[in-house]
Amino acid sequence: MAETNSVKYNAPALDKGLDILEYLSKEGIPLTQAEIAQGIHRTPSEIYRMLVCLEARGYVVRGANAGKYRLSLKMYSLSHTHTPFDELKRVASYPMQLLSEKTRQSCHLSIMNNDQLLIISQMRSPDAVSLSIEEGTHFPLSMTTSGIIMLSTLSAKKRKEILSRDKYYKTWNKDQKEQLNSEIDRVTKLGYRAEASKLTSGVTDIAVSIGGNAELRAVLAVSVFTSSLKEELKVESILKSMEETKAEINKFIGG
């Protein structure tokens, strides 16, 4: 169960404890000490103290009769004390602030909620005049750069299912639908998108994905006055700064 890759610091006891928790979660049924030991390729005596500790801390529960171990609800309770998106907002705040200061532009973070894009965090530009996208606002996935980035992170099956419910997509003809799907494929290969906004004239949106696992997907975006791009800013320089911010946020969330 434990990773075989070499690490700078080893923690054998922690490895054994995590192996036990992961194996019990994977199997999904109560198991004896011997069965757990066999499953994680250790001896029963090796894991005895770990099981005693995990039981004392409330992470596993042992049946009164057969003495089999199962996971308690403690892991569930801990994982729901704060949602993953609460933690994402927290760790993304400082990197987003640095991005805003470096590019002199506002940036925002969004997730998918009820088949729409939901803005969960915004960092305003330090300049006197800038674009602002309020937290809590919903936008259609099919009509936004961030939405297309989000769709590009999904499986083809999941994407098709979501678009079948999109109020804009449902009214489009075959060519329009094919154009969107081709754009999603293009973005999947590039890893970013920079296009004029379909919802706000005179604005260009630049976006990259954050995270990547099934539980935590988000999009980091910068919205810029298109005229500014022509005069003093370059998409490439903004994108470079966004990629650095993306790497910093992913480092904190394990993306």
Rank of each mutant, 00 (worst) to 15 (best):
E22R: 11
E22W: 01
E22V: 11
E22Q: 09
Y23M: 11
L24T: 03
L24R: 02
L24K: 04
S25L: 12
S25I: 02
S25G: 13
S25R: 14
K26V: 06
E27F: 02
E27R: 14
E27P: 00
E27S: 02
E27Q: 14
G28F: 08
G28P: 08
G28E: 06
G28Y: 07
I29W: 01
I29Q: 14
I29S: 12
P30K: 02
P30L: 04
L31A: 04
T32H: 03
Q33T: 10
Q33K: 15
Q33V: 04
A34D: 12
A34S: 12
A34P: 00
E35H: 03
E35A: 14
E35I: 03
E35D: 13
I36P: 04
I36R: 04
I36G: 06
I36W: 07
I36K: 07
A37V: 06
Q38C: 02
G39N: 09
G39I: 09
I40M: 08
I40C: 08
I40N: 05
I40P: 01
I40W: 07
H41D: 13
H41A: 12
H41L: 10
R42D: 07
R42Q: 13
T43N: 10
T43S: 15
P44R: 06
P44M: 08
P44D: 08
P44T: 05
P44G: 05
P44V: 07
S45M: 11
E46Q: 15
E46C: 06
E46R: 08
I47G: 01
Y48L: 13
Y48R: 15
R49I: 04
M50D: 10
M50N: 12
M50S: 14
L51R: 02
L51E: 01
L51W: 04
L51Y: 02
L51D: 02
L51G: 01
V52D: 13
C53R: 13
L54Y: 04
L54K: 02
E55H: 03
E55I: 01
A56M: 09
A56K: 14
A56D: 12
R57Y: 10
R57V: 08
G58C: 06
G58N: 03
V60S: 07
V60L: 09
V60D: 06
V60F: 06
V60H: 03
V61R: 08
R62C: 09
G63T: 11
G63N: 10
G63C: 02
A64F: 07
A64Y: 05
N65G: 01
N65F: 10
A66C: 00
A66W: 00
A66N: 11
G67F: 04
K68T: 12
K68D: 05
Y69T: 05
Y69W: 14
Y69G: 03
R70V: 05
L71Q: 05
S72P: 05
L73R: 12
L73E: 15
L73D: 15
K74Q: 12
K74L: 15
K74G: 01
